[in-house]
Amino acid sequence: MLDKPKTTATPTATYGEEPGLRFAVLLDGQGGCRTVDIAAACSWKPGDGVMWLHFERDHPASADWVNTKGGFDPLVAEALLEEDSRPRVEPIGDGLLIILRGVCAAPPEDEETEEDDLDLVPLHIWVDEHRLVTLRDSGHFITALRDIRRALDIGKGPKKAGDLLALVSDKLVRDLEPVLDGMDEEIDELDDLIFKGEASEVRQRLKLLRRRAVQLRRYLAPQRDALNRIEHDDAPWLKERDKLRFREVIDKLMRFIEYLDAIRDRTSILHDDLATVIGERIARNSNRLAALAALLLPPSVVAGLFGMNVGGIPGVNDTWAFLIIVAVVVVISAATLWVLKKIDWL
């Protein structure tokens, strides 16, 4: 009887087992990795292979490691732990200090839940030939890093530091596409609502959408410049293949920025259409009120004249006077209605 072949389970990535450290892996140079703890990371030497450490930027343990155990220049450590930052790149020695923005998504345990408000969160990076250190705020989850980690666990990840950095940049930009597609679909939906005359809920949604487009562009433009600077850096560990990927990422990011400009222009057009619809509705309601006032004017005049408490009012002693007055009012009102329709007021 033949033995059944043994099946090997896909390793499961673990996160956050040590304070402030999301994960630490040592690349094997073949597309895979080996998970290490913080003690092994502190004793790591460049000859051991490429190390990737991912921290929570605002955790005290992370700040302690960056300031005392990471071996960084004080200015680099300060920049890595800085709270407010815009995308930029600074060559320092043989490494690069990089700050990019990535899409914040649901945490791994809540993958089936949909986020109503995706945002761009800062990702602080230090990279050289032998090590890549990334930091993001606690409570935020960047799908790009999660995908790369999973690829490493199954042996299909990057092999060198330059390859890893290029892949991080590529996936950060890639995750912007569904956000922009969602914004474009929302614009189409708002356009349909305006066309159907259902403009009551459009104004607030349009305002938020336009603000979101402006905010995204505010960060993507400097991110394009930052990636362009990485591509032209002369670091020896950045291979030609890595720079080719950076060029593709920059081209995709430029298209996304143009896409955002188009979205902003479309929101401006929709805002003008909404203002036109609201103006037409106000004018139509004003015409109706004016027509109603015109229809009620003859009865009001007659009622005012015959309601005066003075002598000499005709028909006081006539049994048919009231019916005659009612008939006259009906005729005048009908004539007024015909005139209003004739001049397209109704």
Rank of each mutant, 00 (worst) to 15 (best):
Asn285Gln: 13
Asp37Lys: 12
Pro87Lys: 10
Gly93Asp: 07
Pro60Tyr: 04
Leu193Trp: 04
Ala166Thr: 14
Val326Trp: 05
Tyr219Leu: 15
Asp344Cys: 05
His54Lys: 07
His130Asp: 12
Asp234Lys: 15
Ile324Gln: 04
Glu109Tyr: 00
Leu340Met: 12
Arg247Tyr: 00
Leu190Tyr: 07
Lys239Trp: 03
Arg101Thr: 05
Tyr259Pro: 00
Leu75Pro: 00
Ile325Gly: 01
Val316Gly: 00
Met51Tyr: 03
Asp184Ser: 14
Pro298Ser: 06
Val214Gly: 03
Arg205Ala: 10
Glu17Trp: 01
Tyr15Val: 13
Phe322Asp: 04
His124Thr: 11
Glu189Pro: 01
Pro60Phe: 01
Phe256Gly: 02
Asp94Arg: 15
Asp242Cys: 13
Gly162Phe: 03
Ile282Ala: 10
Glu82Ala: 14
Ala144Gly: 11
Leu337Trp: 09
Gly279Met: 07
Ala290Ser: 14
Ile154Glu: 03
Ala61His: 07
Arg210Asp: 02
Ala79Asn: 08
Asp184Glu: 14
Gly93Cys: 09
Val214Glu: 03
Leu80Glu: 00
Ile269Ser: 04
Met254Lys: 12
Leu295Asn: 03
Ala61Phe: 02
Ile343Pro: 01
Leu292Lys: 03
Arg245Asp: 02
Cys104Asp: 14
Arg210Phe: 03
Leu296Val: 13
Val277Ala: 07
Phe141Tyr: 15
Arg101Ile: 08
Leu206Ala: 09
Leu135Gln: 13
His271Phe: 04
Arg211Asp: 02
Ala144Glu: 09
Phe195Lys: 14
Leu132Ala: 06
Leu53Tyr: 04
Asn228Thr: 15
Ile332His: 00
Thr336Leu: 03
Phe306Asn: 06
Ser268Asp: 11
Gly32Lys: 11
Asp58Thr: 09
Lys4Pro: 02
Glu112Asn: 11
Pro108Asn: 06
Phe55Asn: 00
Met1Lys: 05
Ser286Met: 15
Val25Gln: 02
Ala13Tyr: 00
Ile99Glu: 02
Leu26Asn: 02
Arg281His: 03
Lys159Asn: 07
Leu346His: 01
Ser85Thr: 15
His54Ile: 07
Asp48Pro: 08
Gly157Glu: 01
Ile278Val: 15
Ile313Glu: 00
Leu118Asn: 07
Asp191Lys: 14
Leu118Gln: 11
Arg247Gln: 10
Trp65Cys: 07
Val249Pro: 05
Gly16Phe: 01
Trp52Leu: 13
Asp117Cys: 04
Thr267Ser: 14
Gly307Met: 08
Glu115Val: 10
Leu209His: 07
Asp84His: 13
Ala166Val: 13
Glu258Ser: 12
Arg150Val: 06
Gly182Ile: 14
Ala161Phe: 08
Pro222Thr: 09
Gly311Cys: 05
Leu305Asn: 03
Ala9Gln: 07
Met254Val: 14
Leu206Ser: 06
Leu289Val: 10
Arg229Ile: 04
Asp273Val: 10
Gly31Lys: 11
Ala161Trp: 08
Glu83Asp: 11
Asp64Asn: 11
